[in-house]
Design a protein around this nucleic acid. Structure first.
Lengths: 357, 357
DNA sequence: AGAACGGATGCACACGTGTGCAAAGAGAAT
DNA sequence: ATTCTCTTTGCACACGTGTGCATCCGTTCT
């Protein structure tokens, strides 16, 4: 009795109808008489029948599956993203096919696997996408949305935080607090997110007349960030403010400064991150950071993807989600500009008018 | 040209062979002449052909997909588990269908969805499984493995840490350090993992003549753990050692004790967790905890699942993975029994002979 | 040279479902 | 009573692939 799978034929026989009638019972909007439907449903229940989604996908030409590729999971941002993504896709009746461990972008073999499953769409989070692979997707008719990465080598939709605005805000915040010697702990240099954050931060400092930014590579890993921070803070001209490309590294930076070097944060050195992941708000860190709103980013990504799945008319687009600078305890506070909003403190440049919500 | 999917028919036509020959080229071990294979492969490459995994699944009767259900993702243990799981399954040629947000167990609707996709197996992490649903799986011939949960209401395979031994070790460790007043921050009471850890901890204390254990419910959440810790530590007879059902809560407990109450850890109160997740080793916490080896647990789970997929002969079994008590700074150290092994310090009961590795 | 053998190839069926089309049936309108 | 309309139902085809079976061909052995 184990492994016995019931098909619509058996249900039809038991209900005394044709197989088509069974199919129509499980197809919303199909023409079926109420009493026939009842009889079929009763037979289906008794036999434990469930329509075979594989066969349905084959005939329908779409699988209702979305491939999700995530580079790495150590950074808390990605589990949070994945969690939200799974929920949203489930609510829309889609299944999530997960692929992981591809920080440098999916390999050709992996890519072939994904395309072989005839997924209705792909979401790539924190992953590079070569234009060759993007072309392959276009040829196969599979819409793609990048999350937390953009690419200018190919015309692909993407959802990112407004990294340039965020990084400029960090620079202004630190300048307003009186800092003059800055350090930057970089992520992977080829990632668009790191590029945007780094160049915008550097630009805003330059606008304030500060041309030297000490830069060390953290590679988006905690070990790398620790080493980078130690290098920065053991220099004779050590910076008194460090901006880390993300929270994951900022936490390692704080530990390196406080525990390994015995420095006080923020008295001896201010540390600011980016993302506002869960641990950033843990009291032992109380990290000042720029939020990267997971829900909004996922909503935008899913919406963009669904628009492109629905019709060919939807254009490729890049969505930039703004995020507030959340003020906690890891960086010196400017005397002005910090306001309490919704149970947390945020900072907005004083010169600009206050935007909505 | 977009959305055009190439089938084996077109490849066959271009290569001047039958469709069967094309199929055999993509079936390892099939009988095919080398030069035919070359011609077919060349045609496939030119047309961008990839075998349709959906159709293949339909004919083969198995989808090479494994459904993974995870209760929640806040606790770092689960992303780590998922990451490892995805890698292992990928290496074995299986795809991972992810479902999330079901801490109380998958709903009937979700379950029907999963079964509809004719997955070859299911892995349920931190999720309850009713015996009715277990029976449904058995009837459908879908092997199931629980991870980090056991059930005695149904005969289902599972992989768990050796929670009883681990919790006993914690009790002995704290007793050896001279503690006498204990608190326990519980997880969800119905979860087997919490039950095992709590009862074993309590039993070992009782064996030492200590019958009072102050218990507060943390519900596996950080908010719950914070509240529970505050309740424990503001009592007149406050405990000087707290065991939390997992690290996720232990971290919140440390923050509540140190930041909110101004207590020193471990001088005023020792705090011990369970899991050894990433943040446990962050220097700001340096949590003393019992490891729950992710790799070993995932390996065991995958192995168990594969055995049951391969043949009906494999019996249901429960695997218990042992884990060391990792000594860091969040709990008072006993004068004896702590040894350095492989770059970290672990503790083993002195009375017992030292086990291998 | 003929027989035996083994590898390669094509035919045709199967997997389980959705759906267009025609037929059938019932009810209403003339 | 006849015709028209609308709903319901069944037939048959399609989706893209794997594979058993028979056939064919080239090689080797007697």
């Amino acid at each position: 009795m184990a492994g016995r799978i019931v098909t619509s034929v058996e249900v039809a026989r038991r209900a005394g109808v044709s197989r088509s009638a069974v199919s129509r019972c499980f197809t919303p909007g199909a023409s079926i008489a109420p009493e026939t439907r009842d009889r079929v449903m009763k037979a289906a229940k008794a036999l434990g029948y469930r329509p075979n989604a594989i066969a349905r996908s084959l005939i329908a030409g779409r699988s209702r599956m979305i491939a999700v590729v995530i580079g790495y999971m150590e950074n808390q941002f990605y589990p949070a993203l994945l969690d939200r993504l799974a929920r949203d896709l489930q609510d829309l009746g889609y299944r999530l096919l997960l692929f992981t461990g591809a920080p440098e972008g999916p390999s050709d073999a992996l890519f072939a696997e994904i395309l072989g499953y005839r997924v209705d769409g792909m979401i790539l989070a924190s992953t590079l996408l070569s234009s060759a692979l993007a072309d392959e997707c276009r040829a196969a008719g599979v819409p793609v949305v990048l999350v937390n990465r953009t690419t200018d080598s190919a015309d692909v939709s993407s959802v990112v935080a407004d990294n340039r605005t965020g990084a400029r805000a960090v620079a202004e915040f630190l300048l307003a607090a009186g800092h003059r010697r800055f350090g930057y702990v970089a992520g992977i240099a080829s990632s668009s997110t790191n590029q945007d954050r780094e160049t915008a931060f550097r630009e805003r400092l330059a606008e304030a007349g500060i041309d030297t930014l000490l830069r060390e590579d953290g590679g988006y890993t905690q070990q790398g960030a620790r080493d980078a921070t130690l290098r920065l803070l053991t220099r004779p001209d050590r910076p008194d403010a460090i901006f880390c490309a993300n929270d994951h590294m900022a936490i390692a930076a704080m530990d390196a400064a406080r525990v390994e070097l015995g420095l006080r944060v923020p008295d001896d050195v201010s540390i600011v991150g980016y993302d506002d992941v869960g641990p950033a708000s843990w009291p032992s860190y109380a990290l000042t950071t720029v939020e990267q709103p997971v829900e909004a980013m996922v909503s935008a990504a899913v919406e963009t993807l669904m628009a492109r799945i629905a019709g060919e008319g939807a254009p490729e687009r890049t969505v930039r989600i703004p995020g507030e600078l959340v003020v906690r305890g890891s960086a010196r506070r400017p005397v002005e500009g910090v306001t309490a909003v919704g149970g947390r403190e945020i900072w907005r440049p004083q010169s600009l008018p206050r935007s909505a919500s």
